[in-house]
Structure formats: structure tokens, C-alpha cells
Write a protein that binds this DNA or RNA. Structure first.
Lengths: 141, 141
DNA sequence: ATAGATGCAAAGAGTTTGCATAGGT
DNA sequence: ACCTATGCAAACTCTTTGCATCTAT
């Protein structure tokens, strides 16, 4: 049966504490604050394990490594800013997509990703007075 | 400026001829029917180039390598069968997602992926009489 | 003739796996 | 005590890059 280890607890804690999906590397770094000797292999093994049992979910964006987030969070989608590359949660959901698929197809779940310009990047002239500091993920593209 | 080579033409032709997104490996194999000595590096270089100029688009599904498809095809989404792993096109689109993002966010485009059971996998008992032959991508998961 | 494109092989990045050891039950 | 989970390093897969050669313009 599955054992409860400090490593697994730390990884879960990191994902539960984050308000956006994290890269394996980020998870490793943050979890090492709890378990110093934690290795990347253990992170991957636990991500896979936790994903299989439904405790966490993978978030994949085109051209980027998979990120992971706690499945405990309410159903939501993602928005990636094409300017700064950051990923935001979108808690709205148009809902029922069951009728979109061809006849005979059964829709179990869906994923929706929006791309565009985030509020910060949309008004660069007010960036200073708004106190925006780009403290999240740095620009990528 | 950009030259027109047999390799690039073959890659474009393969993508234009396909009715579902293809993996780089599949593109290589099919294009080699035209250009025998074609190498994988050239496929990747051209996929990148064609994607940058908007001629093709990448389709990324969680846990799978990116697939590519012609951008000439009308706006559509994808459905992946959780049983056989195949990817189907979904030509319906709920449309306007502009209001889903938080205030100040500008939505330029969106991607929607549906997961569930395809018509074939939904009724295994009628698979024989329907003539289904699983000739598309083999099961993966 | 010139400069972009190709093919091969080596290099990178991200992820997985083998194996001996640590540690939960 | 048993057996899963870990840590390290090697292995793997997918993708990118260096370099000499080829080729479209």
C-alpha cells in the first residue's frame, strides 16, 4: 500500500499552497525547503503517482513543459499572456460542451486555454503607477 | 529570403493531405515517400519555420508529443478518446470566450480539447458489423 | 556566386528507470 | 522484518544545434 513519506507530503503541500500550476523544477526547489535531500526523480515519481490517483492534474501549454496543480482546486481553465508568458487561472467556464462532439461521442471532460494579453501587459503606460513589478514568471517569448 | 525546396514542399503536402494532426515522426515517414533522404532535423526545422509564418499549427495534448496540422483548415478543436488515444477534429465551436477572462484581459484566441469516448469505443459490440478496423493510430494508454 | 537549406551526428533538455539503501508499517 | 520509497546516476526520448555540403535563386 501507499506510504506517507515526508517527500510526498512536501510535494503535496507545495502544490496545495500554490495558486498557479508549477513546473517540476519549481516543485523541487520549493519542496527542498522541507526536505533538503529531495531529488528530481522522487518529484517525478510522486507527480505521476499523485496524478494517477487524481490528487493532482497536469497542465500542458504548447511549447512549454507540463505544469502541475492540485486537483482540489475548483474546476477552472487557464489564460496565458502572449506577451509576458505568465499563466493565470480562469475560474469562469462556459460549461456544457457535450453537444459539440460528433454523434456517438461521449464527452467526459474538457480543457480550455485562452491566449491573449493580460491586464498588466495591456496597459504598459499605467504599469508604473499601478505598482506592477513583474514579480511572477519572467517573459519567455 | 525563403527558398522553396522539395523537402519543405513534401512536409507541407503531408500536412495538407492529413485530416488529423500528425506527430513529427509520422510527418517524417510520410514525407520520405517523396524525399527519401529527408532527415528528422529538417522536419523539425521546417515545422518551426512553418509554424512561425503561420502556415501550420501545433496541437499539444497532455502527456503526448506535439502534433502539427495545416493552418489552412478551418478553426476547429480536438477530441481525444480516453480509450483508444486517437485524436479527432471537432468542427463545432462554442465561439465567444472573450468575457471569460478577468477584467482587463484581452482574449485573442482559444484552444478547446474534449476528452471522452469516441463512437467506436463507446459501442464495442457493434464494432465488427460497423467495419471498424482500428486503422488509425493504435491504442496508447 | 551567394546565402539559405539540408543531412548527419553530437549536444541539450526533460523525464524515466535500475539499483542499493533508507525508512514507513 | 518486509517491502515501498528514495537518491543517485545512467539511460531514454524528443528536440535543437554545429558544420560541411548542397542547391535554389
Amino acid at each position: 500500500m501507499e506510504r506517507s513519506t515526508r517527500q510526498r507530503a512536501a510535494i503535496r503541500a507545495v502544490l496545495d499552497a500554490s495558486d498557479s500550476p508549477l513546473l517540476p523544477q519549481e516543485i523541487l526547489e520549493r519542496a527542498q525547503a522541507q526536505v533538503t535531500a529531495l531529488g528530481m526523480a522522487t518529484v517525478y515519481r510522486n507527480l505521476k503517482l499523485l496524478a494517477e490517483e487524481g490528487a493532482i492534474q497536469a497542465v500542458t501549454l504548447p511549447g512549454e513543459a507540463p505544469r502541475y496543480e492540485s486537483a482540489a482546486r475548483a474546476h477552472h481553465h487557464h489564460f496565458q499572456c502572449q506577451t509576458c508568458g505568465r499563466v493565470f487561472d480562469v475560474h469562469a467556464c462556459p460549461g456544457n460542451f457535450d453537444t459539440l462532439a460528433p454523434p456517438g461521442f461521449q464527452v467526459a471532460r474538457h480543457e480550455l486555454t485562452l491566449y491573449g494579453t493580460c491586464a498588466e501587459c495591456a496597459r504598459p503606460r499605467t504599469a508604473e503607477q499601478s505598482g506592477a513589478s513583474q514579480e511572477a514568471a519572467p517573459p519567455r517569448q
